[in-house]
Every structure is written in C-alpha cells, then in structure tokens.
C-alpha cells in the first residue's frame, strides 16, 4: 500500500486541493515513529496560502486489537472531544476513499510535544511539566468522563454487554481471549476469580479514553499539550481509567511514583475529585489498577500469539509473551495488598 513518496505527496496534495476547495501543495512528508499498530506521517502543507503542519494517521491492514476504533470512528470521537474543549489535536479532514492512499486516513493539526513516556518521566528539562501534569491529567480525564457521548453520534463505541457491569465485561473479555488463545494459566485463572468475587460496584458509566497513560500524551515544557491515541476509547467505569494510568508498566523506572512515574497518586485523585465533582473510592481505584494489569498481561499473550501464529512475524511481539510475567507479578502483589 505504500507507493513511492512522490506518488504519496501528489495524491495527498490532489486530495487536499479537493477537500479544502483551494490549491494545496505538500512541502514536506515524513513518516513518524510510532507503535506496531500505527502509520503516522508528519505533513507540512500550504493550503490556499496558509501554511499548515499536520499529522496524517492511516489505517493499517492489521490492527493491534480487533476492538480498536477505525480511523473514521477515531476522527469522529476526536471531533467530539475537540468540540467539548478537551485538549486534543484539532481534527481537520477525514478521507474514506481508499483509492487515495490505499486505506482510510485522517489529518489533524500537529501538536508540538513529546509522546514518549520514558522521556517525559526522565528528561531533566521536563521537571516543571511533571509537576504540572497530575492536575492537568486529572482535569482532562474529568472532561472526558463528562462528555455527553449520547448527544454525539458515537454509538459505535464499545459498551458493556446487556446485563453486564463494566467489571463483568472486562472479566468476560479476558476469559474470551484466554480461551481463543487456548491458554490455561493458573495465575490468570485465580486473578479473574478473585476479580469476580471482589468487584466494587460501578457508580458511573462514562466515555473513557481507554489508553490514558503518560506515553499517550503529548507533553511540552508547560505539561499536557494534547491527549493522543484514542483508538481504544469505549464506554466503561471511569475509575478503570484512574487505575490504568497508575499501572507499574507505565512508570519507566520510577516505580515508587504510582502516577505514571511522575507523582504520587493521592494529589492526582484529589484533583480529579475537584474537577469531576465526585468522590473517588480509593479501594475501587486499587481494584481497577489490579484489573488493568490482568488485562494487559493477557493482551501481552495475545500479542505474542500474533507472532507465534505466523500472522505477524515480529521479534517485538514475540518478546511480549515473556513480558506478561511482569504484569502477573504486579496483579498478584496488588491482590496481596488488597487482601487475598
């Protein structure tokens, strides 16, 4: 699906000329480093005399997970988030015509910032940003969780099956993945049973970003510039998200700082309570952090299976199979802390 760069630029400038209704030229097009599931380009363009710096995000034939949003869905969700005043790159154009670039894609404004979690956690020049981030993250999460998803046309978002609570939905999915992989795993089996028997009640069901962690934020010297990577957004318990961004795997060597290696958890939760106007049950957040580890540990096995099945040969995917033990250890430690 990748033609020559010259072709790519020509097709894109033709598309932009038509989509914008004014002459458009591409002055620069370069691939951006991303994860295994992304195809992203930095595009510098001139549209009707206005210089625009854009990011192009294109569907790949293999997506990371089957329940990830398509580019069209992601674009529409980002549009709703942008309209709601959430810090997100401004979405510009969505193209569903696969004859242009081989797959659907969209263009959004480029946001200057660092999107690599390890750097955000460790770079000395980002110390001020790290101090500001916990409250900024809390503010954005409160807004995301308040977004009236029913008022927008977002009914493609995955929601718990009828009759299932958000917790039960996550547990059912985890069992389904293990079954599909034909994996019998005593540690996960026990963790899922413990999860069933110790589930806190869900008080709210809201839009959640689904992958809200330091590495999916764009961070500049002032802190949070934009929330990126919306492809795992779904409807669920907002506390899932508060637990998720505290998981150890996103702490990058700063294990004692539970909030993504940048801060303690309590000031973050306190700020969230202020912005969202709700009280947060700390024990329920502990629980969701635990369940997040169960889920991520199982996804690691599924990712390794993409390699093992021959579908997607990759040394990186293979390595995730053995990384799963880190999440297993963490989930057991959290059970021990909460009470076996």
């Amino acid at each position: 699906m990748t033609d020559t760069l010259e072709d790519f630029r020509q097709r894109l400038s033709d598309y932009l000329t038509e989509a914008s209704g004014t002459p458009a030229t591409i002055t620069q097009a370069a691939p951006l480093a991303g994860g295994a599931s992304r195809d992203m380009w930095l595009i510098e363009t001139n549209v009707g005399g206005e210089a625009l710096k854009l990011v192009l995000r294109r569907d790949l034939p293999t997506t990371m997970l089957d329940d990830a949003l398509s580019r069209e869905q992601e674009f529409r969700l980002m549009q709703a988030a942008y309209d709601a005043g959430i810090r997100v790159a401004r979405p510009r154009w969505l193209c569903m015509d696969i004859s242009i670039l081989g797959a659907p894609f969209f263009l959004m404004d480029y946001v200057d910032g660092i999107g690599i979690g390890r750097k955000v956690v460790q770079m000395p020049e980002l110390a001020e940003a790290r101090a500001a981030l916990p409250a900024q993250m809390a503010a954005q999460l409160a807004k995301i969780h308040q977004l009236d998803y029913a008022a927008h046309d977002l009914n493609f978002l995955f929601a718990p099956a009828d009759g299932l609570t958000p917790v039960q939905e996550v547990i059912a999915q985890a069992h389904a993945v293990l079954e599909a992989l034909n994996v019998k795993h005593p540690a996960f089996e026990f963790a899922l049973r413990w999860a069933e028997q110790n589930a806190p009640p869900s008080e709210r069901t809201t839009l959640i970003h689904g992958d809200f962690r330091i590495g999916n934020l764009l961070v500049n010297a002032q802190g949070l510039a934009a929330v990126a990577d919306w492809e795992f957004a779904h409807i669920g318990d907002p506390l899932e998200e508060l637990g998720y961004c505290c998981m150890r795997d996103w702490r990058f060597g700063m294990g004692h700082l539970r909030l993504g290696g940048i801060g303690d958890r309590e000031p973050f939760l306190h700020a969230y309570e202020q912005f969202a106007g709700v009280r947060v049950d700390r024990k329920a957040v502990d629980y969701w952090e635990f369940l997040g580890n169960v889920r991520w540990g199982i996804i690691c096995l599924a990712q390794a299976n993409r390699h093992l099945s021959g579908r997607d040969p990759s040394v990186e995917l293979a390595s995730l199979g053995r990384r799963s033990a880190e999440m297993q250890y963490e989930m057991l430690r959290l059970i021990e802390q909460m009470g076996i």
Binding site: P186, F190, R322, A325, E326
Partner: peptide
Amino acid sequence: RALFKHLLLSTREQLEVASPRF
C-alpha cells in the same frame, strides 16, 4: 492462601528467567 503462595512463587521463577531486573 496456599494457592496464592504457589502462584506468587511460580511467577517469581518466571521472572528470574524473563526479567530478573524487574
């Protein structure tokens, strides 16, 4: 509790191979 202990030790052994630094 007995099961938990077994699982914790098994996971530690996995990590001794997969990720001793972690």
